[in-house]
Simulated scan of single mutants.
Amino acid sequence: MARRWKSNKTSSGDDWTILITLVFCWAHSINTLIAAGLGGINRITVTPLEHAQIALRTLWISNFLLITALYTVKISILLFYWHIFYINDRFRKACIGMIGLLSAWWMANIVCVFLIGDPIDSSWKNAARAKHRFDFNSWYLWYCGLSIFFDLAILCFPLPVIRTLKVNTRRKVSIIGIFWLGGFVCISAIVRFVLFYQSIHGLTDFGKNQYSSITNAFIWSEIEPNTSVIAACLPTYGPFFRENGIMPKFIHSMRSTFGMSSTSEHKTSISMQGKAYSVGYLELENATSSKKSTGDIVMERATTVSVAPNSNIK
């Protein structure tokens, strides 16, 4: 809706991939909630063996959903970069290369999850007693670590292009800040990694039910993909903060409700192709880009300033 509000554009690839990510996030959350209901909330209501079976089976299912969600959200961000920096051929080739690398990472992990049990159906039928074809814990830690590495790499991906923009340093920093709104995703991924690592090394006494120690890791495995969806969408929300957007209208409505009048409002807008856009997350897309012979991107911005009758800057 934000994209169409901005320029009446139809949905693109990054919109569809983020919707797919959202579906897998919901499926992952539902899987966790069902497991919580079966095993007990706040206190375990089944035997330790039954709880181990529920926890391991849920973890096995969640791997398919979580790996796919983290994969598709990364693809969505790369496709977003693709549209933003469309005139830089080398950057677009780099995006294609990263998409290929992520696809290989996703496929390899899905195959590992599918084949972890021996026989294959044991991961579903009897996960607590299933034989593993390889060290599941080591694989899981490597998978989480690579996901964090890819998140950091994708955050840094546009930096070389932004460095070549013909704008001042302050503007470059603000543009970098737009793309680094997803930094919390990396933090949540690191927290999940640490909690799962601690839960692995806490399973020393199998006479007690210590599978409950992975509860916090499960919670952060919910936080990570869902916040990644929010972070991936934030740069597109600029139109909601325009003069005729939802947020200014909501604020004006609240002012009117509580009898707060605004005699003068300072509004800065960007004149672009005959339209006025409020300064927001879309300032990079709203800038006019032209390609020089050196391949640099030139950002040309025009700011419209009008003087009100009372000589205040409007």
Results as ranks from 00 to 15, higher is better:
138 S>R: 14
73 V>L: 08
85 F>N: 00
9 K>W: 02
96 I>H: 09
75 I>K: 03
251 I>Q: 11
81 Y>G: 14
306 S>D: 11
222 E>R: 03
77 I>D: 05
197 Y>L: 05
99 I>N: 05
275 K>D: 08
106 W>H: 11
117 G>T: 03
106 W>P: 01
15 D>S: 14
278 S>K: 03
208 K>P: 10
219 I>K: 08
196 F>V: 06
127 A>C: 14
8 N>Q: 15
189 A>P: 03
238 G>K: 01
307 V>R: 09
53 Q>G: 11
131 K>F: 10
102 L>G: 10
14 D>W: 04
41 I>W: 02
191 V>Q: 04
260 M>L: 03
63 N>D: 13
90 R>G: 12
174 S>E: 14
281 Y>K: 00
193 F>K: 02
128 A>C: 10
94 A>N: 09
258 F>N: 02
111 V>E: 07
138 S>E: 10
35 A>V: 07
83 H>T: 13
206 F>E: 01
196 F>S: 03
184 F>Y: 10
272 M>R: 12
32 T>P: 00
187 I>K: 03
85 F>I: 07
9 K>Y: 09
170 R>E: 10
291 K>S: 11
66 L>G: 13
37 G>Q: 14
83 H>C: 11
8 N>H: 15
54 I>A: 04
97 G>V: 13
197 Y>S: 04
85 F>M: 00
205 D>F: 06
120 I>D: 01
279 V>W: 04
184 F>W: 03
59 L>M: 15
254 M>L: 13
45 T>Y: 05
73 V>R: 09
28 H>Q: 10
43 R>A: 12
121 D>Y: 14
151 D>H: 10
266 H>R: 07
194 V>C: 04
33 L>N: 03
59 L>D: 03
185 V>S: 08
213 S>R: 09
235 P>L: 12
132 H>I: 10
227 T>M: 12
312 N>R: 11
41 I>D: 02
195 L>I: 02
247 M>W: 02
217 A>F: 12
124 W>D: 00
262 S>H: 02
47 T>C: 00
42 N>R: 11
123 S>L: 15
239 P>W: 09
120 I>E: 02
127 A>D: 05
100 G>P: 06
100 G>N: 07
182 G>W: 03
101 L>N: 09
225 P>R: 01
191 V>E: 04
219 I>H: 11
299 M>G: 02
202 G>Q: 04
235 P>G: 10
251 I>V: 14
267 K>E: 10
197 Y>W: 08
250 F>R: 13
98 M>K: 01
275 K>W: 05
61 I>W: 09
53 Q>M: 06
